[in-house]
Amino acid sequence: MKVVVTAQGKDLDSPTSPIFGRCPVFAIVDSDTMAIETFDNASAAAGGGAGIQAAQWVVDQGAEAVLSLNVGPNAFAVLVQAGVAVYRIEGGTVREVVQALNEGRLEALSRPNVASHSGMSRRGGF
């Protein structure tokens, strides 16, 4: 299964990032082979709607699951509507969390776990 992990670095032993929309790196991992491909998160520098943009990117990659901690409601809505499952992680490396997923030890989130608007910003703000 193709999963996206929010990460702080570019290999399997990099620490994960608790942030979804503005995490530094997205790691795309094949959970069967542990093959990894990493991408700088272009949304990290987005004005408003980083979470939405990041979720759109994940959907466009054809991923089936996201492993992260703080997923806001907008990003969550995009992922859920696209049929992407969201799993909650706390700490650990990319390798560890994917293994935990394989062993069925991760909790699937059924709703967003940070309040709305956490990172919004527009013209003068949002």
Binding site: A46, G49, A50, I52, Q56, V59, Q81, A82, R122, F126
Partner: peptide
């Protein structure tokens, strides 16, 4: 629509278009 929105107020998933009105300018 999602591509041209500078404010990320629109996302397009395989079955529908999602509009986040509070982000829209």
């Amino acid at each position: 629509c999602a591509q041209v929105c500078a404010f990320n107020a629109i996302a397009v998933v395989p079955t529908k278009v999602l509009v986040f009105a509070e982000m829209c300018h």
